[in-house]
Design a protein around this nucleic acid. Sequence first.
DNA 1: TTCGGTGCAAAATCTTTGCATCAAG
DNA 2: CTTGATGCAAAGATTTTGCACCGAA
Lengths: 132, 132
Amino acid sequence: MKYSRQRESIREFLADCCEHPTAETVYMNVKKEFPNISLGTVYRNLSLLTELGEIRKISTGIGPDRFDGNTSPHYHVLCTGCGSVMDLKMENIDHINIIAGNEFEGRIHGHITYFLGTCRDCMEKEKNKNIS
Amino acid sequence: MKYSRQRESIREFLADCCEHPTAETVYMNVKKEFPNISLGTVYRNLSLLTELGEIRKISTGIGPDRFDGNTSPHYHVLCTGCGSVMDLKMENIDHINIIAGNEFEGRIHGHITYFLGTCRDCMEKEKNKNIS
DNA sequence: TTCGGTGCAAAATCTTTGCATCAAG
DNA sequence: CTTGATGCAAAGATTTTGCACCGAA
């Protein structure tokens, strides 16, 4: 594959970014370095990097897809209050693949899981609402 | 909520349908009974029924959302070969919510999980390809 | 020089919505 | 009657793609 400065910039942005930006957010940020970059290029490179396994795509079905520069195996929580996506520090749960495979007449390769929850900030807000 | 024959037909189709149709597929089928029904009405009712908990929405991020008339707790496999979505008979894995909550500074309500796999048909096809 | 990558804009895909009309209560 | 639901079509939101040009090798 041929090198491209735009792709490199996207990769770097995702590596440094601890949130889980959408394509649009990546676009806005990479635009600072490459004012002429187009959204199409961002999408093309995000797909490419996802296929190469250099970044991960997070699809929750709620709003646009998000991307994660951290490819080490880990899970996410989607806060149902504010919609933010956070990393989750937790032990491996790959055993659920075995459980799923027990009565399935095919092969299970893996799973996609994200948790639904309420983040600390939203819990605060709830608490304050109940007081007032 | 006011009764509507269209909504009832959508609900019935999903209850009888053992696949996991997309909105488009629901539309095509309900059209047999209500030739004038519009896709907008189908979407409106699918959202409504999902909110009421009478059907479930399955978002995999691959292709359009799918819907499931079976609301009893169960999991799905997405065949990476043919894209079909199948029910999975398996024991409850709600303990992963506890695991996820252990080091999270908020509350975990639940999880969305689907498995990736190869269905029996696609395994057959793979086998035949290797022979020929 | 070659060929893959880019920018741009148009299109494709999926879903939601405004509005006049229809039908359930 | 009243009000929510429908049909239709237009618009929204997100993502993909065709094509001429540019830049990495």
